[in-house]
Write a protein that binds this DNA or RNA. Structure first.
Lengths: 198, 198, 198, 198
DNA sequence: CATGAATGAGGCTTCATTCAT
DNA sequence: GATGAATGAAGCCTCATTCAT
């Protein structure tokens, strides 16, 4: 499949990352064999090692790149707006859209954490915690301003994140609902869920 | 660990299920070897086959048993109450408590779906769909009675389920929050999220 | 080759050791593949692992067993005689005969030291040093009694050992010389070499 | 190590030989990878092939160069003296000093014989036999003149060679003994060992 | 019911070598 | 002369599964 003969260095690396992402998503890291990956890229198994150092490194590379992009883009998305409510809206919209667009990266970043070496594990989990702290911060600011409920902010955040992240499990772009509809619905649900006034 | 030498038939099967559940939870189905499992149970690899027919069957057995229990207990929990709101409260309470108590079964029932043979996959996914339908039914009834919002019930249900199920990822019994606190908080959040009056 | 079908456990282990010894002797540890070894034994490669834990362990097992036997037999050989000269004669006779009889074990015990893991290396080298000390002790006792020269005993011992050990490189049982002839000649050379009177 | 970037042709070849000698000495021919060698030289693997034709050729080149030098130098050393005893003394002194000075070349010339292709093997072994014949010749001449014992000259020679060659295994320049001391001691031992008068 | 030895496939990784640039 | 990407074979080792005892 996808034989990119005559491909040069960078192209091959890119092809490995792309195919690797898909195969890990579909079969899981443990279940994906490098044989399979190489076949998908259109090279010999041994040739993979001109581009990656180990199978583990391939996984780590994918997850780290994902987390870096995620954090970067979130920063951009939140920089644009002021006020706790607007920021919560922006967070929900960004998170949902990003998770729909990159459902495979997101999925393996959760499901394959346990396949990481201890060091790599710590790195990724640390980045994830940074991400969560952004939402927690918004909730706390909102609660401080009397906009949101004063419930435990981390636990509230975990609930919201789980709910929003769930979309990459079931959302289908051609389903009953558009991404816009979904963002609107989930924004309303989240605002209601944390709504202090009432 | 758990070397129960001299164990007789049913006890061994039980030990296999218990150790299998833990090992699959900790390492994943693909990454768990029968050698590992046998060592944990305290028997030789070959002896496993006096109790299970294949590795795949062990997984399927665990997942099916889990889903059967889940559905059964949900039925009991919902049978006790009347009215959409009370049923929604009962659902949230049941789901959260059950997922906290059986986090390993719940986790592998999501994460190892892809490790199932096609037939087994259909069976388990079918049972899961039954479970989801119970919540969807409650939401629709509540919407019909004007208690809940009239948003897309399945999508709303998916959001709620994802949020509630998330607890088995992060909840620690000795953490800041008791299970009761958590149930209360999440019940409120869910009711707010679907609350139609406003 | 050498298909011992229907062979049971201990027999297989023995066959592995025997074939392993020969192959390591002929090709060297690094150059001997487990494929090759398994074929020689008449089993599949994977089946080797029912008897050995790693390739390294196979090597270590062979070397340790060799050194243990060597030390044991030397003790027996020296226990039978009294006096430094008689002991030196006994040492030479024992060493030459043993090294002729077990030339393969002896050879790999020198040549494959570097293939051992650090721990295993220390163990074997330690046993070798014990062996050398026996000869050094005899030389020192003899020198003390005025029978042998008073030259540096360890260096003298190394020279003697190298000379005697050399036999396993070139001695052929059907050659010009019998083992008895060889023992006689080398005994005389060694006694002359260390002879103090003069 | 030894990264001599910008090295030109002959220098690179020299660096390859030097590093190759050391790596083969330390790890063995089979265990030394060209990757390892290239890294040591400071070039890429592929670049090695601008200087050597195969890995086997690298080995053969090292061994042949060693044997040529050895034979040449021996000729020089023996040309200087007359008489069997003086020649034996010269042989011992030369052999010990050379083997101390070039212990790595000497060692691999024994240990890696088996790694040579049949043709290369014959060439090197032939040169070795030439070398041995020089000592055998001396012993026979000495025996003919009544200076040495009339024992089997080749076997006597093998014993002497083994003893002398052993030095490259254990001799340390900063040890208890200087090279001069060693030459003196071993010369005496050898003369005693072959001494006919007595 | 448990054992341990066997199978055959397949896992990740390294290797010597080639060759277009 | 050097590079780096590719090859294809082979390395050690682990796997799920079977079966005679």
């Amino acid at each position: 499949m996808a034989r990119t003969t005559g491909s040069n260095g960078p192209k091959t690396m890119e092809a490995i990352n792309k195919a690797g992402l898909r195969l890990i998503y579909e079969h899981g890291y443990e279940a994906m064999s490098l044989r399979h990956l190489a076949a998908e890229v259109g090279i010999q198994v041994g040739s993979l090692y001109n581009h990656i150092s180990t199978k583990q490194d391939l996984l780590f590379g994918l997850l780290r790149m994902h987390m870096e992009t995620l954090l970067q883009q979130l920063t951009l998305a939140l920089a644009a707006v002021d006020g706790a409510e607007a920021q919560l809206r922006a967070f929900v919209a960004f998170h949902v859209r990003y998770h729909i667009a990159r459902k495979r990266e997101v999925f393996i970043c959760y499901s394959e954490l346990r396949s990481l070496d201890p060091d790599h594990y710590e790195t990724i989990v640390g980045m994830r915690r940074d991400y969560e702290k952004r939402l927690i911060g918004i909730l706390e600011r909102g609660a401080g301003e009397g906009l949101f409920s004063r419930d435990d902010a981390p636990v509230t955040a975990y609930g919201i994140l789980a709910m929003l992240t769930g979309v990459c499990t079931w959302f289908r772009p051609k389903g009953r609902m558009t991404a816009d509809d979904l963002v609107e619905l989930y924004t309303r649900m989240v605002l209601n869920a944390v709504g202090g006034k009432k």
